[in-house]
Write a protein that binds this DNA or RNA. Structure first.
Lengths: 122, 122
DNA sequence: TCCATATTTCCATTATTCTCGAAATATGAG
DNA sequence: CTCATATTTCGAGAATAATGGAAATATGGA
């Protein structure tokens, strides 16, 4: 991950509304949530939501797909994993055995994408 | 962790200069780095650095202590761990066994603080 | 006390981001 | 084709943040 990507992701998440959107999508899992449902769940104006989803998408944190009239957004676990890894990269240089187990987990978070299909079996 | 703390941390890190500072401190480990050394390493004006360190400190991401004429800054691994945990909280609701190993790692990242004493035994 | 080093505070300018109303686009149903 | 739903785009004003020069504060040494 490049520094610039990380900055984009972090500043995208550094906003109360967008962080709430992202956490809702993380919680929802890879099946995603329609934009309208996000707007209702968080009680925000549709145009604000759209702008914020667009910022998250441009930062690479969420992906979208159209489904009928709705557009479904989902968290990108791979990007998330990359960001967390970037933040802790070379953590405690000289004592990597303490911080590097991160890698194992990040791989699993990444795998979370295709792997975890919650409640509704779709 | 409250949402507001997380937003503060994320927006603090959502800035190229501050992210570079933070990563340098993460890499340096709990022993920390003097403000002047950070400024030299990253080639930034001392007043900019001071402002940015202040933002990081206010967000809870770094701590400082005076040592002679210098002020030593270090990354706060506990805060970092809290932030990462907050971001992935309830990840993939319904399939927590996939994402929750994060917790184990976050505990270790947190422990990184007192535990890892790199190269110079101080 | 006087000086050099280290860091912070103050200030003004510039640049960016946020917010929200209104209009536009896209899809599917009748 | 017309209509209702879902989402995005456009635009302007308000708010917030970034930048860098200059001065102020703090510490330690001679």
């Amino acid at each position: 991950m490049e520094s610039k990507s990380a900055v984009n992701m972090l500043s995208a998440l550094g906003h109360e509304g967008r962080l709430a959107i992202f956490r809702l999508l993380v919680k929802a899992g890879p099946q995603g949530v329609a934009a309208g449902d996000v707007a209702r769940a968080l009680d925000v104006l549709p145009n604000s939501l759209s702008a914020n989803l667009s910022i998250l998408a441009h930062a690479g944190l969420v992906t979208s797909r159209r489904e009928g009239r709705s557009i479904i957004y989902s968290a990108d676990y791979g990007a998330m994993s990359g960001l967390l890894g970037f933040l802790m990269e070379d953590c405690c240089d000289g004592a990597p055995e303490i911080c590097s187990p991160l890698n194992a987990v990040l791989a699993r978070v990444e795998a979370c994408g295709p792997a975890c299909a919650p409640k509704s079996p779709a």
